[in-house]
């Protein structure tokens, strides 16, 4: 049963036990806030300010957050916020896929003049300070009447989803040998059919991974909706913060419940695409 050792791996020794201890230490640090969030979300109103770990768990906070009661306390309907987040993120990802797949394909398949300019301009969106764009957009949106709308959010979320999808997919298209599609052309398929029959199925894992990762980052975005939405189409990230300071009253247990609900979708999605995560997080720069 002796496994071969990878570079840098060592067999068991006192040193390796110490190393495991350090790892366990990190993971206590890493997971404690999440555990605490869950515990707090299960505490009743009267116990919310206690710092004890022993208490009588209740699920009533989730009911409160998702009901009119929560809306009354925060002036944001959390159920609608969830729906808004889903619509915005799914919409933004679909738009990015529809626009991004052809562009990623063109950039991965051909060298054409301006190809790098297009790609790097798209990448620069990822690194541009958001407020540089938001302030003018705030004014433009008000003029166009799309302030605090899903359309407005889907547009601006392209800054988050587009670079991710285009860059990841380009790296997938580059990895796919051109001769596969050429073979399809010679088999008598048009370029469109060759793309659909050969290229698309092969990059399907890349499409799924990049779309889901883009979904996560769109979901987690805060600064765009903070400024570009009001109270009607607020997504969950903004809605969660409303529980913190509702009229001088603090609702820690409700905040924790709302945070937990808001954090669950990205966590679940992330765990499902873990295998593709590294390539996605590095925009295709690191392949694993």
């Amino acid at each position: 049963m002796a496994r071969e050792l990878r570079p840098g791996q060592r067999k068991y020794s006192p040193g390796s036990i110490a190393a495991d201890a350090v790892l366990v230490g990190w993971f206590i640090f890493s997971l404690f806030p999440l555990v605490w969030m869950v515990l707090l979300s299960l505490k009743s109103r009267s116990e919310q300010i206690s710092t004890y770990f022993a208490f009588t768990p209740t699920l009533e906070n989730f009911g409160t957050v998702l009901s009119d009661e929560g809306t009354r306390l925060t002036s944001v309907n959390f159920t609608e916020a969830l729906l808004t987040s889903v619509i915005n993120c799914v919409g933004a990802v679909i738009v990015s896929l529809v626009i991004g797949i052809p562009a990623a394909y063109a950039a991965g398949r051909w060298k054409y003049r301006g190809s790098n300019d297009v790609m790097f301009t798209i990448l620069s969106f990822r690194f541009a300070p958001e407020l540089m764009v938001i302030v003018p957009l705030f004014i433009i949106y008000n003029q166009l009447g799309i302030f605090d709308t899903n359309v407005g959010m889907i547009w601006v979320l392209q800054l988050v989803t587009m670079p991710l999808i285009v860059w990841i997919l380009r790296s997938y298209f580059q990895d796919m040998p051109a001769e596969l599609e050429q073979a399809a052309l010679l088999d008598g398929y048009s370029r469109k059919r060759a793309f659909l029959m050969v290229a698309l199925p092969l990059v399907r894992p890349g499409i799924a991974a990049s779309a889901l990762l883009a979904f996560i980052f769109a979901w987690n975005n805060y600064v765009f909706p903070l400024i570009l939405t009001g109270s009607r189409h607020t997504p969950v990230t903004v809605a969660v913060t409303r529980f913190l300071g509702g009229g001088g009253q603090a609702y820690y247990n409700l905040t924790a419940a709302a945070a937990l609900i808001a954090a669950l979708p990205p966590l679940l999605v992330a765990l499902s695409i873990q295998r593709y995560l590294v390539r996605g997080l590095s925009f295709g720069a690191v392949k694993s």
């Binding site: 806030p33 969030m37 945070a259 954090a263 992330a270 873990q274």
Partner: peptide, 24 residues
């Protein structure tokens, strides 16, 4: 075992991380 949960904090919205830590 721990590797599987390594990325969890990264996948939570930073603003929510801020909220949780703020409470703590």
């Amino acid at each position: 075992v721990l590797e599987r949960v390594l990325i969890l904090p990264l996948m939570i919205a930073p603003v929510i991380a801020g909220v949780i830590w703020g409470l703590m």
